[in-house]
Simulated assay, not measured.
Amino acid sequence: MKESTVIAISREYGSGGRELSQILAKKLGWRLYDRQIVSQAAEKLGVGDMGFEKLKKFEEEVPPLPLSFTPFYLFGVKESPHSLNDKMFETESEVIRRLAEDAPCILLGRCADYVLRDRPDTYSFYICADDAFRAKRGKETYEGRTLSDLNAEDLKRGGYYSHYTNRKWGDPKYYNLSINTGTCSLEQAAGLIVHYIESVQA
């Protein structure tokens, strides 16, 4: 696999996408970036003291934000939450581009597939699963969350993605490959990704 290769993973909540990415990172010996992207962007914006959950909530609240939702004001940032939301996306995009140039890596979420859409040797994968599989994982892995809870999270992800990319989240034409983890193990799914990239680059 080329040293310039970057893998961007998008995933439905409850599909096991994060765990699959961890397996993939271990298999390839690469760095996996997820929350680090948010943290590095927050540091650049001067709001690194904000907890990850607050940052994530802010990140997911795409414009127009309710006027009552102004978490950055608590940290002395005197700007509109609307413009700060855009700045967060722009800064995360800068972080993603830099990470992609530094070394082979795996990027989880954060519209990385869109941000790197014109970069050679970038491969994007959408991880999904059937409702039964997701409901089971929600109960066993995600502290008893129901399928409705998982779908609500996906609505946020889809809204955020669509707002900043003008694309429909999960549309297969925007990914190299979509994988249903309800039909194979996460280890097998990771193997499929490796095999796909190696086949394309051969």
Rank of each mutant, 00 (worst) to 15 (best):
G159W: 12
D102H: 08
Y161W: 07
N85V: 03
Y196W: 02
C111S: 06
P104N: 04
S185G: 14
L24D: 04
K173W: 11
T5Q: 14
N176L: 09
D49Q: 14
S80A: 03
R145V: 14
L147G: 13
R119T: 06
T165Y: 12
W30E: 00
A8G: 14
V6Q: 02
S178V: 08
Q40D: 10
L74P: 03
K168N: 06
R137S: 03
R157Q: 13
L67V: 04
P63L: 07
D118C: 06
L55E: 01
Y13D: 03
I37M: 12
D121P: 04
D121W: 09
C111Y: 01
G16A: 12
L155V: 13
T141G: 11
A129M: 03
F89R: 10
A42Q: 03
Y160I: 01
V38N: 00
K156C: 08
Y175C: 03
P66T: 05
I37V: 15
L20P: 06
A135Y: 05
A100Y: 09
D149K: 08
E53P: 10
S178Y: 03
D118W: 13
V47I: 14
E43F: 05
D34T: 02
G17N: 05
K27W: 08
I179N: 03
Q40H: 04
P71L: 11
V6P: 02
R35N: 06
R35V: 01
N166I: 01
Q188A: 13
K54T: 04
R145G: 15
D102Q: 13
G51E: 14
E187V: 13
G144W: 13
E61G: 00
Y161C: 05
F58S: 14
C184K: 15
V194G: 03
G14M: 02
T181A: 15
P81C: 02
G51I: 07
D154H: 06
S162R: 12
R157D: 08
D118R: 12
P71C: 13
A100T: 02
G16C: 09
D86F: 09
L186R: 10
T141A: 10
G158V: 02
Y73H: 01
R119W: 03
Q22N: 11
D102R: 15
L20H: 02
D118I: 05
S148G: 01
A202N: 15
M1T: 01
G48R: 07
L65H: 10
G182P: 05
Y13F: 07
Q36C: 02
T183S: 14
D171N: 15
E61I: 00
K136T: 07
W169V: 02
S21W: 00
A132R: 15
D171W: 03
L84D: 11
R167M: 11
K136H: 05
L55Q: 09
T141H: 12
R117Y: 14
S93K: 13
R98Y: 00
T91F: 10
A100R: 09
Y33Q: 05
S39C: 08
K136V: 05
R145N: 13
Y161K: 10
T141P: 00
S93N: 15
F75A: 12
G191S: 08
S124Y: 15
L45H: 13
I37H: 08
Y114H: 11
S15E: 04
L147W: 11
L108F: 06
E198M: 10
R137H: 08
V38G: 00
G29N: 11
G46C: 05
E198W: 10
